[in-house]
Design a protein around this nucleic acid. Sequence first.
DNA 1: CTGAAAGCGCTTACAG
DNA 2: CTGAAAGCGCTTACAG
Lengths: 349, 349
Amino acid sequence: MTDGRNLRRRVTLKDVARDAGVSRATASLVVRESPMVADGTRARVLGSMARLGYVYHRGAASLRGRRTQTLGLIVTEVTNPFFGELTTGVEAEIDKKGYVLLLGHSHDSLEQQARLLRTMFEYSVDGLLLCPAPGTTVNDLEVLAGLPCVMIARRVAGAHQAGYVGANNRLGAELATRHLLQHGARRVAFVGGPVYSSSRAERAQGVEAALADAHLALRPEWSVPSPSTWEGGYEVARRLLRRSHRPDAIVSYNDVVAFGVLVAALDMGLQPGADVLVTGFDGITASAHQKPSLTTVSTQPRELGRRAGWQLTNLIEYTTAEPEPDIPAPVLVTRESCGCPPAPKGHSL
Amino acid sequence: MTDGRNLRRRVTLKDVARDAGVSRATASLVVRESPMVADGTRARVLGSMARLGYVYHRGAASLRGRRTQTLGLIVTEVTNPFFGELTTGVEAEIDKKGYVLLLGHSHDSLEQQARLLRTMFEYSVDGLLLCPAPGTTVNDLEVLAGLPCVMIARRVAGAHQAGYVGANNRLGAELATRHLLQHGARRVAFVGGPVYSSSRAERAQGVEAALADAHLALRPEWSVPSPSTWEGGYEVARRLLRRSHRPDAIVSYNDVVAFGVLVAALDMGLQPGADVLVTGFDGITASAHQKPSLTTVSTQPRELGRRAGWQLTNLIEYTTAEPEPDIPAPVLVTRESCGCPPAPKGHSL
DNA sequence: CTGAAAGCGCTTACAG
DNA sequence: CTGAAAGCGCTTACAG
């Protein structure tokens, strides 16, 4: 006895066509829901498909049709839930437009990113969503050769063909800082973020702008870069808060860094929200779940992903020459860490 | 003038072959790194490929070759970082074996899961990794028709063909409970988890087994299911801790639930680790970053993902009839929430 | 509205 | 070690 499972040939459109007594082209039209098929014929073909257990072979379709309905997403970090939430948003958006997601993690490595780009290209993705690893240049993107592409959260200078979706870094940091000033802060520090990143620079500018309006300045020794990790925030905050002349407020580069700042303060016997005011940036779910809960500039990561997916599918389907950057307005979510009362139950952004 | 970009035909193996003066078959052998090609010929072909800017077309290759080097991963929840960390592990493992990941989120919906299964099938994935949505039955998996498949974290009764990678729920909960008893706990509650899930039942059994050894019992009103969310943990803990006769220790269904429990305790003026001992389950990164830090049963989510990827690729390449379930031993990571000193800096599992 | 033919870019036997 | 032919399962013009 041989194994029936292995012998069973894949059911093809040809089989369906024969069974239904039509040509392959007609069967193909039915699969693709073309209106140009007579109702009776369509019903007959659908019946055969169901009876024979036909499943559409997208690989074959795309070889001929030049579209894979496949999108690549390359994210960098992985310890940061921001990227997880973003990915969810992307998937939700493209799924409803009939695309599927090919996922890769570059771990902030240029080599790994280059490999992934090539792989995605080999798989003939219809378009690409990329959170570029730090140090990415236009040259690194040349392999893409005209493939529709949208950058997320980080920009690559000179990549004009590519779309962009990201937070308004400057405005966001400005909002946070202004709010802290209203709460009486006068000695504001800015903590975390990769040294030479554009996003860190932009956020720092926002802090400075808000301070300037209050006739204050960001002291250079209080603008401290760090890895964008919990540990980064923890270490820097410890150092800053240990001094006798210490900041009375800390604007953090992102939420994960802010979490480290919160714990550092608590470990030193300082109450965030009272002894030192703290804000984050991103608005990941966990920001609502800290104790004290974290005031943050929400970029609504899920929504950001959704928009990136939207922009990319548009780029593919309508081929704009130079897409408009999509930079949604950030919203300040006030919670305990800046001295505000906790948000009402169930409230989240 | 017409746009040169659109006119440029894709460079095919045929072009390469012509340029190098060999047949397509030979060029194909070179691409696939076959040793059966003369060194000189190979060099010539590789040269042509580089000069012409050839990129391998995997779609075409798999249509003929019957392998797409593509794996599907369907994940359920999204608010829980556990799945993010798991995904990273999966990707790391399959990437080095030359596979690529097709990602889908079922959001715990059976309909969405069914759609995703079908889609992955249409894309001819070589295998599937599935965290089944609650309520999934063997029937739901029939569409897979022999496709190699590995379940992650949750089992589907009767799915014998499929592999399985998941935590040892019973043992894990037992370890945690024993540890709490050693710290002097006597009134232990078990909080969170979906009512009828096998994993909740197994973890509850572990708690009971440890308590039984100490001649104690799990009081029915102290075994409280809840959504596996922060909110779920928060609400249940509030209710339990409000009573005069309250638990002195809470074993939480997972880390996210435990985070809610921690904050509920703090909100009520109780110190976790002193007034009430708390443990989690999963070992997500954030467990080390709470204040107080969370003692947890680590299943090492990344490692779990790695193993699932390993099992699936093995299943594909060596076709075992009935794969062995892979149930790694959980490890208890002790931190502040059970009254232990915080783990040393940089320590994580 | 339907059918016959060609082709997407590769790999797989099979000769030589 | 290399070449000519057939075919993977679809879609795309093009007739009718």
